[in-house]
Structure formats: C-alpha cells, structure tokens
Simulated scan of single mutants.
Amino acid sequence: MYSAFCNLGWISRVQVNHPAVLRRAEQIQTRRTVKKDWQAAWLLKAVTCIDLTTLSGDDTESNIHRLCFKAKNPIRLDLLEKLHMDDAGITTGAVCVYSARVKDTVKALKQSGCNIPVASVATGFPAGQTPVKTRLEEIKLAVEDGAAEIDIVISRNLALTGQWEALYQEIRLCRETCGHAHMKTILGTGELGSLTNVYKASLVAMMAGSDFIKTSTGKESVNATYPVALVMVRAIRDFYWKTGIKAHVNTRTEALLFRIGASTLLGDIERQIYHHVSGRYAAYHDLPMA
C-alpha cells in the first residue's frame, strides 16, 4: 500500500552537509571489492536487478523482440553451466521501453514464455515538460497496454523553485493513475542543483507513494554519482525509520543497490563472467547483443 501524506515541516528543515557526503562517498569507493566466486555470484545477482532498456527513436518490433530474448537469456548458457547456475532462472529485472512499444514488448515476452515485467517510461520522458493531463494520459495508456511498472519523471522546475507541495500533488496524481502498476520516480538529480534538493525530492517522491526512486533518465549531462546515491539511500533509510515504509532505489551507478537502470552494465557483467570462467576477456563478437 502506498504512502499518502506530505510532511512539509520535515522537508523545510532538511540541510545536507555537502563536504561530509563527498568524504563518505570517497571512503565507499576505496573499500575492497569481492573477488573470484563471490564476485561472480554478486554479478549474477546484479543481472537480476537490471532494467534492460531501449529508448531510441528507431525502436522497432524486431529490436524489441531481440531485447526481450536477451532479457530472458542475459548470460550465455555455457557460461552459466560452468558456474552450475544454468537452472537458476536468471533473467533481468524488467524490460523498459517507451509507452508506444509496450504492446510489442508484452507480446514478445509472452511468446518467449517469460514473465519478466514490462516497464514503460512516461510523463514526457526525459524532460517532463508536458502538461500534467497529457502525462497522466500517457501513464494510463501504458498500463492499459500491459506495463507492470511506470517510470515517471518529475518536474524539475518545481524542485528548483522549492514548490514541494506542488511536486507532491503532481507525483500523487501519477501514483493514483498507475493503479496496480509499480511507480518508479526519476528525479533527474543532475538537474536538481544541490544534494539538499536531491534529498528533499527523494522524500517528496516517497511521501507521494513511489515504489522506487531513480537517480536519472540517462539523458542528462550528469547522471548518477556516488554522493547522489548516498543521499538517496539515506533518504530511504530516514523515510523508513519515520514511517515503516520501504522504498527502493534505482540507480545508473555501479551495481550497488536494488534496481539498475544502466543497460550497458549487462554487457560489462557478461564480459566479467566470461573472464571468470575462461581466464580471458571476450571479444566483441563472443557475446550476443541485447
């Protein structure tokens, strides 16, 4: 059940200590990573958190079909067999497309016998500079076509001008229009101006009922960074402590959190798995395209 309140007093009191966040982010990056079999296990887990995405003007039914096949078979079968993971049912977390391609994606996944959820970007992605009525209609059509997850973008101007109640009301309307579909709210953190705004926008999005909060569309000049991810995770923690409600974070940075929007990461993971199994790095033609 989604949240239904807006605590403007909490939001108005927030101030993020920028230097402290930067120091903590640097510390996180210097920590030792897992190695060998543990690394392979975590990489396979990361695959299941990826939203395999195509958001191009030249998307067609055929490349949607290819993407869905890759979502169902993200890692080459012979590599999984050598890791004794060929029967683990590893797939990506979702397939993400424009709303106009939802029907094609649902059809392709159904034909493959796979129940991976379809996610659709909506609400004037990526800029969010369309009228609210149009944005809500786009959500409605995507859900009707079979999207199980909706990725909305916020009006960054509302955050930049401190109109937090207006932002809450807008996201709330989107949540209600999503109905049974999960709603992932993209903050566009590279365009929010400060880490304080990132924290406040995270809180507002969760207060309005977002199931996930996402860092960025991938179209901004600056997308996810370690400091941004750290601030968002702490906002999730603080929101949980105050309400008992757990949101999730979807980030385009390293495989750190719960759902990963960076589709290019899948190719990097498969190459690392290939190296773990064979002792050498794969050539471009050794791995199937998404």
Rank of each mutant, 00 (worst) to 15 (best):
K45T: 12
A20Y: 08
H65T: 01
T33K: 07
K35R: 15
N17T: 09
H65F: 01
Q39W: 10
R23H: 10
I28M: 10
A41S: 11
Q15V: 11
W42D: 06
R32F: 05
K35F: 10
T53R: 02
D58R: 04
L67P: 00
A20R: 13
V47Y: 09
I64C: 03
R31F: 05
T53D: 00
W38I: 02
L22P: 01
D51K: 08
D59K: 03
I50G: 00
T33P: 07
R23I: 04
R66Q: 14
L44A: 06
C49F: 13
V16R: 02
T33L: 13
R31Q: 09
T60E: 02
R24L: 13
H18I: 15
Q27I: 08
I50Y: 01
R66K: 13
I64Y: 05
C49S: 13
W38R: 10
Q27K: 15
D58H: 11
L43Q: 11
I64Q: 04
E61N: 09
Q27H: 14
R31A: 02
H65Y: 00
T54S: 09
K36S: 01
V34A: 12
A41I: 05
L67T: 03
R32S: 06
D37M: 13
K45S: 12
K45D: 08
S56D: 15
T30Q: 14
D37T: 12
A40R: 02
C49K: 14
D58C: 05
L43T: 07
E26G: 10
P19K: 12
R32H: 05
S56V: 10
V47W: 07
N63T: 08
K36Q: 02
V34Q: 10
T53G: 01
E26S: 12
K36A: 04
R23E: 00
H65R: 07
T30G: 07
D51L: 07
K35I: 09
L22A: 12
V16G: 04
N17G: 01
D59W: 06
T33W: 08
Q29F: 14
Q27G: 11
V47D: 00
Q29S: 15
N63F: 11
L67S: 02
K36M: 04
A40Y: 04
R31N: 05
D51I: 04
P19T: 13
C49A: 15
T54R: 04
L55I: 01
C49H: 13
T53N: 00
E26L: 08
V21W: 09
N63G: 05
A40K: 02
R66T: 11
I64R: 04
D58A: 08
Q29D: 14
R66S: 09
Q39K: 15
D37Y: 13
W42S: 06
N17Q: 10
I64A: 05
Q39F: 11
L52S: 03
L55N: 00
K35S: 10
W38E: 00
P19H: 14
S62I: 10
N17H: 13
A41P: 02
V16D: 01
A46P: 00
R31P: 01
T48Q: 08
I28R: 11
L22I: 14
T30I: 11
